[in-house]
Design a protein around this nucleic acid. Structure first.
Ligand SMILES: [Mn+2]
Ligand SMILES: [Mn+2]
Ligand SMILES: [Zn+2]
Ligand SMILES: [Zn+2]
Lengths: 148, 148
DNA sequence: ATTGATAATGAAAACCATTTTCAATAACAA
DNA sequence: TTGTTATTGAAAATGGTTTTCATTATCAAT
């Protein structure tokens, strides 16, 4: 765990106080490439500091999503999952999800082709429906090596 | 409401008996372009026949998803949504979702470009990860005309 | 460093979509 | 028409997430 202030300077308009749970949750997500649920995050942080509460995990995850520091998504297993949002464009990726075991693979191939299609579509949607596009999701699902 | 046997002939390997609830749920979804939740379906069918139970709605939706007659998906409002799966390829479409009010727009533009990218990606994923791709989701989110 | 206002926390309860249980019902083959 | 049993619906259970509220801890002002 880094010093308790590593992330403090970012987006202070979203909060008044930067606390230990906020630091540790964001730190955990920033260090893993896993796509974690609130419960999984809680299980790990509870070991480090058993005083932490699951409620705080949920509240903090909401906050971090609003701040744009993490992404929230679902893979259909009944719980929300979260991943760190890397600043650089190189972090942009999509998901391949195994419908059976829930395994998630990040991939970021054909980003140029994808970007072209996405831009074209966004332009089209804003013109046709006056819809303001803020983001997109592209995911493939099927069976992973083990499950098929 | 059509005769109680309109859908009966399809995929009989998935069930033993074709019942009134199954017929009415599939019939409802086949007639609407809305993306309905179990509760919404229940509310409508309850007016027609108050004997129906929400449990049966859920069970039947599961069955119809397994049969491939409907699609299940989520827009992040905490409940699953379902839509009829049209047989023809022309029914293929994606979703534009308003993050504020939950409005869903179906669109199916640039399908050729998209299909090309999707095929290329699927081939790549199956080679690189030995992943068997069974489907994909592409969705845009943002703010609809009213909400922005 | 100390203090005070109050934002943030955590335990417990509430909420709510979905699933399970189980006795009653109804589809349909015989 | 009848008997088997798949299916149903009400009620209870489940499980992820949110709300409540008294306590705690951050941090600006001293
Ligand atoms: Mn990812
Ligand atoms: Mn649709
Ligand atoms: Zn798998
Ligand atoms: Zn809207």
């Amino acid at each position: 765990m880094p010093g308790p202030r590593k992330w403090r300077h970012r987006h202070q308009r979203y909060f008044e106080r930067w606390t230990a749970p906020r630091e540790s949750i964001l730190d955990l997500l920033s260090r893993t490439s896993k796509h974690m649920s609130a419960k999984e995050i809680y299980a790990i942080l509870y070991r480090l500091s058993p005083g932490i509460g699951l409620t705080t995990i949920y509240r903090t995850l909401d906050l971090l999503v609003k701040m744009g520091l993490i992404n929230k998504f679902t893979i259909g297993d009944g719980q929300s999952r979260y991943e760190f949002q890397h600043e650089d464009k190189k972090g942009h990726h999509h998901h391949v999800i195994c419908s059976k075991c829930g395994k998630i693979i990040d991939y970021s191939d054909f980003l140029e082709d994808e970007l072209e299609l996405v831009h074209k579509t966004e332009k089209h949607l804003s013109q046709k429906y006056n819809f303001k596009v803020l983001g997109h999701n592209i995911e493939f699902y099927g069976l992973c090596e083990k499950c098929q």
